[in-house]
Design a protein around this nucleic acid. Structure first.
Lengths: 206, 206
DNA sequence: CACGACTGACTGACCAGTCAGTCAGTTCTT
DNA sequence: AAGAACTGACTGACTGGTCAGTCAGTCGTG
């Protein structure tokens, strides 16, 4: 019961900060939810801001971890891509509050955090994008991906699509937003095709 | 000098709320920036929350307005699509703070706002997406877009890509994230093609 | 002067952060 | 083994500062 408390505090923070606005969350609530005295929070975190930032960062790291693991598993490019995206989607779903914190905190840090924070954050973000873009580079090498855009850029777009799937399209039937359909859209684009979805394309123009 | 003040207050709010966190923005600051007494704010808005919400909503409406205008202009599908996306990108750039508010406020409202607010917000959002998805439906009718996904869903993905372009890819050279390249990615996808980008596609498989 | 738009000093609520005190557990002493 | 002495993790009542929201008063205009 020691690192345990730290962990419980962060869990509570993850939930609360991900559910309400920062200033609507009282450290007393966090303490209560973590079943810990308010003062205890200050044993592990310097202040509210620190708690928030650490929560965001640790969630981010966790996600990178999972991502790298999945992306690194052996297999053909498309197979790995599909698996990785499935994992991302899963993570977004299960850890929704965390996801929210990472999104909004990231924005905030990049916009108005000190240069130190900004640097730290940028590094993490890069780590995450890299996990995906390394995968995409494999696809490029295999001739399965266009090479006229940097892998990093493509990775951002792919992540953007996944985020849209989980965020804006929340509530739509799963069948219309399966991770497979996102990957398909990413790979094939929005133009029609009479051929098998994942292996061929046809021409069609105005 | 009457509706003028209301407008000035909203301008100041747009800037401040879009730059800092909500609780870091003092109504005194807003008043100062708007060159108005603090009390005046309460003549036009019931409270801080109301000011924030109205600012977000009005910005949203403004964007819908512009979008509908652009999307409704005559022309071939691809041409119109390109023009509309250019407009969105432009708007995101020029009104960055507003854009931030809309993003985070939207999230917040949908997550924890009352059902009344949520309903109002959903309606606006729908209006916006519809402007795009009507355009996409034209593309479908012309056989230029896949029809196995609802136009609404495709519209969300397209907007997601544009958001990624403006947000995550901020700082990248304009040449690597032109709105044309986003549209190209959306239409053609990420698979390679030796032919002219916007009119033909080739097959290539693993 | 009458009316209403406007102002900004004021107040009460709220909350981050503190710190004096508690007590479970551990080590020392006999 | 018993209990005395100590430790430091933990707590929560308290404090000082901040700020949303108020309202008594000012100003400008008709």
């Amino acid at each position: 019961m020691q690192k345990d408390k730290r962990h419980r505090i962060m869990q509570a923070a993850e939930f609360l900060f991900g559910t309400k606005r920062v200033h609507e969350v009282t450290l007393e609530q966090v303490a209560q939810q973590a079943d810990v005295g308010k003062g205890t929070i200050y044993l592990y975190f310097t202040d509210k801001e620190d708690l928030l930032f650490q929560t965001a960062v640790s969630g981010f790291d966790e996600m990178c971890q999972i991502l790298r693991e999945k992306a690194a598993q052996p297999g053909m490019f498309r197979e790995r891509l599909l698996r990785t995206c499935a994992e991302i989607v899963e993570f977004f779903q299960v850890r929704r509050p965390l996801f929210r914190i990472v999104l909004s905190e990231g924005e905030r840090v990049m916009e108005s955090g000190g240069p130190g924070l900004r640097q730290r954050w940028r590094k993490r973000r890069q780590t995450m994008t890299e996990a995906v873009s390394e995968l995409l580079e494999q696809g490029m090498a295999a001739g399965e991906l266009r090479t006229d855009m940097p892998a990093r850029v493509l990775a951002e777009y792919l992540l953007g699509l996944l985020r849209t799937r989980s965020w804006e399209l929340e509530g739509w039937p799963e069948s219309q937003r399966s991770h497979a359909s996102v990957v398909d859209l990413f790979l094939r684009g929005a133009t029609p095709s009479q051929a098998a979805p994942l292996s061929q394309q046809n021409e069609r123009n105005h």
